[in-house]
Design a protein around this nucleic acid. Structure first.
Length: 727
DNA sequence: AGCACGCCGACT
DNA sequence: GTCGGCGTGCTC
């Protein structure tokens, strides 16, 4: 580093806490830091890792200044990444320190990985040769470095043979660089066989991905059309030009199956990044991404904050998936922030989905994003026959929820030795429990939503905040014994009904409260794929990313569920979910069937699913949102949260109405009546702020913060936006 | 976000 | 008489 000008003696450092701006620290004499350096600094009673930021650090009482304790031997956070942090903080109205915290989540990674003890061949020769020594030297003379045990193992000899040679000076001790977490992917490992549609799409994407220039391209193709194979070609092009690549996936889609597909194409797995990664591996991946040794990462949304050295392409798979929204601390949508990161650093983004979000589709149609379409399923993977079951005409038996039409189809499916899926997006046994003597309904004490009965566990659970209580025998209100009745179905109840109809069938229930976590879930999914179940009953987690080759019937138990919950995105979400679920069938060329139980067969969502005319649905939905000025086309832009009681929330709303020019456009929502609500926490009410522009919301929020009695702590600002445009 | 300080209930 | 609950406030 050139030292023309003296190093500044005070620098701003972004520390991982809710600070509005970087703090200033003194640079001890002889210490060299530059913007982006990762440093250890004292903060209150402890020491934390921070990032040296840009600028002069502002004015601080010099008596408060404390010195930087250490500069980590670690690649610096580059300028585009720092601008990204600033941008995300500004956009999400969160303190920049909290955004910085997201990229400092691998504490031990800031120190270099230790080098490994190894041995290397010298020019010396052994005193005499033995068969074992010959084998060892043949391997060693190929020029590679080895660890002692590695070489012994490879040569099939005892490590004492190596020790003997080492004593004679035939080998010397060397330090080997740390082992890569994954092998380097080979862009040309295989040349995939693509059909003409795929080849055309791949060629467009290769061209985009081959350029180090900002672009966004939507890859739009029905489930089973081979989107993954197509975007792999784009990845190959990006690797060819020396770029690192990030594939963002919804957490649940980060499966073994995906990694294998990648390996089949590139000869090596991508590095994984998600919340279940063991700490040690997390650190190694972080470090090797920063050093540029890892070339491809497949990760959940937090992977966007990895300190890539040469990031040159982001693929956002299933771009419509709500899992891309982080809904605590810093609220962000990783899909949108990926585009921002690409815009800042100047590289391409690919958004892939069979059911794009409305806002992405609008951006594609308006020309803001490019669009590549894959029109059909390939090979023999035909789409299933889709039909609505009008539940008014074919009602279920008394006390049941499965229509005779669906049961009949399931019977035929099972008799052919094939599998059926009953889909119901509701965990537990029943969504509402009431006392049939006094009418008491079980409600969550902290957020007033209905408690869902989980019969397997014998508990009543609040799906809003996680509150649980034991299911009592007697009504807590009138004391009547054994008069509690379950209202409505959950997957457990559907399983009970299915067992009644198909006593000999092997039935599996899959939902996120499956005991045994992700590992168990993976095992169950594999078991199903191998045909070890006849009927699968599942919530939305069966909709994603897994292929069941023998599944030829999909029955949607309650297709209307979610349509009338007040969420402006309800129709879109339902359409996406039902498309994904029905897409589970028909992947083998066998004739397959999707049946939707509905009380509204004429609803646009049902018609779109049954007819397969997604375009018409999207057009209509887009149009309606434009007219209603609903998200993402205008009014809704943000929300403010955090009041313990409704009265307090109303108080905040009054303050805000006084401060804000658009007085009428603030709604107070309690968690129970706010399905839009992104907040899972207890005692939380939300002010929904409507505004035409994001800057309006920022103004609202800032004036509220200024006007509130307790500007710090008691009021938190969180933003939920699915913007049409945000760059 | 941590973490310390600080002021009120059930236990060795 | 102490241990410990989490409310409030601060961190360059």
């Amino acid at each position: 580093m050139t030292q023309d000008s003296p190093a500044p003696s005070v620098v701003p450092v972004m520390v991982p806490m809710p600070a509005e701006r970087p703090y200033s620290y003194a640079v001890p004499p002889g210490m060299a830091v530059a913007p982006g350096s990762i440093v250890r600094v004292p903060l209150g009673p402890r020491e934390v890792a921070g990032i040296v930021w840009d600028g002069d650090g502002g004015k601080v009482d010099p008596r408060k200044l404390r010195p930087i304790s250490q500069v980590f031997d670690c690649p610096a956070i580059d300028a585009p990444m720092r601008r990204f942090v600033d941008w995300v903080a500004d956009y999400t109205l969160s303190p920049p320190g909290m955004v910085a915290r997201m990229l400092l989540r691998a504490p031990a990674a800031f120190d270099p990985e230790p080098w490994i003890d190894g041995i290397a061949r010298t020019h010396a020769l052994p005193d005499r040769m033995t068969a074992a020594r010959v084998r060892v030297l043949e391997l060693a003379d190929e020029g590679m470095s080895w660890t002692r045990s590695g070489l012994a193992h490879a040569a099939g000899v005892s490590s004492t043979v190596i020790d003997g040679l080492r004593e004679q000076g035939v080998f010397e001790d060397v330090k080997l660089p740390p082992r890569p977490v994954v092998a380097a992917p080979d862009p040309g490992y295989v040349t995939p066989a693509l059909n003409p549609d795929q080849a055309a799409a791949a060629s467009t994407l290769r061209e985009k991905a081959g350029q180090a220039a900002f672009s966004v391209t939507l890859l739009d193709g029905v489930t089973g059309s081979g989107k993954t194979e197509v975007y792999f070609e784009a990845i190959s092009a990006a690797l060819d030009r020396g770029a690192q690549v990030l594939i963002l996936l919804p957490e649940i889609a980060l499966t073994h199956a995906f990694l294998e597909r990648f390996q089949d194409r590139f000869g090596a797995k991508p590095a994984e990044w998600h919340s279940d990664l063991p700490p040690r591996m997390r650190e190694r991946v972080w470090r090797q991404v920063a050093e540029g040794q890892v070339r491809v990462v497949a990760g959940a949304r937090s992977a966007l904050f990895l300190p890539f050295m040469e990031l040159g392409l982001v693929v956002v798979d299933e771009e419509h998936d709500p899992a891309y929204k982080q809904e605590d601390r810093v609220f962000y949508n990783a899909r949108d922030m990926a585009i921002v990161r690409a815009h800042i650093a100047g590289f391409p983004v690919i958004l892939a989905s069979a059911t794009p979000s409305i806002e992405t589709r609008v951006n594609a149609l308006s020309g803001r994003y490019g669009r590549v379409a894959l029109p059909a399923r390939y090979a023999e993977a035909a789409l299933p026959d889709l039909k609505a079951i009008d539940m008014r005409r074919s009602p279920p038996a008394r006390g049941g929820f499965l229509s005779p039409v669906l049961l009949d189809a399931a019977r035929k499916t099972l008799s052919r030795g094939e599998q059926a899926l009953f889909f119901l997006n509701r965990r537990g046994y029943a969504p509402l429990t009431l006392c049939c003597v006094c009418g008491h309904r079980f409600q969550c004490p902290s957020c007033s939503s209905w408690l869902v009965e989980h019969r397997f566990r014998g508990q009543l659970v609040c799906h809003q905040c996680g509150h649980t209580e034991a299911r009592p025998e007697a009504c807590p209100s009138c004391g009547a014994l054994d008069h509690l009745i379950a209202c409505g179905p959950g997957v457990e109840r559907i399983a009970e009904e299915a067992v009644g109809h198909f006593p000999d069938a092997r039935i599996i229930v899959l939902s996120s409260d499956l005991l045994g976590g992700v590992r168990r879930l993976r095992l169950e999914l594999e078991a199903i794929a191998k045909g070890e179940a006849d009927i699968v009953i599942g919530t939305q987690l069966v909709a994603k990313g897994h292929n069941f080759p023998n599944m030829t019937l999909v029955g949607i138990v309650d297709a209307d569920l979610g349509l009338a919950n007040g969420d402006p995105r309800a129709a879109e979400r339902t359409f996406q979910l039902l498309s994904q679920v029905t897409g589970r069938a028909g992947r083998t060329g066998k004739k397959s069937l999707g049946l939707l139980q509905t009380y509204q067969p004429d609803h646009p969502v049902m018609k779109a699913i049954v007819s397969g005319d997604a375009e018409a649905f999207y057009d209509k939905e887009t149009d309606e949102r434009q007219r209603a000025a609903m998200p993402p086309f205008g009014r809704l832009a943000g929300l403010i949260v955090s009041a313990a009681t409704r009265a307090e929330a109303e108080g905040h709303a009054r303050t805000l109405r006084r401060a804000a020019p658009r007085a009428g456009d603030i709604d107070v929502l309690g968690p129970a009546e706010a399905p839009l609500a992104l907040i899972g926490g207890r005692h939380r009410f939300r002010l929904l702020v409507h505004g035409d522009k994001r800057s309006d919301i920022q103004k609202f929020v800032r004036s509220m913060l200024a006007a509130a009695d307790k500007p710090r702590g008691s009021v938190r600002v969180q933003v939920d936006i699915d913007p049409q445009s945000f760059l």
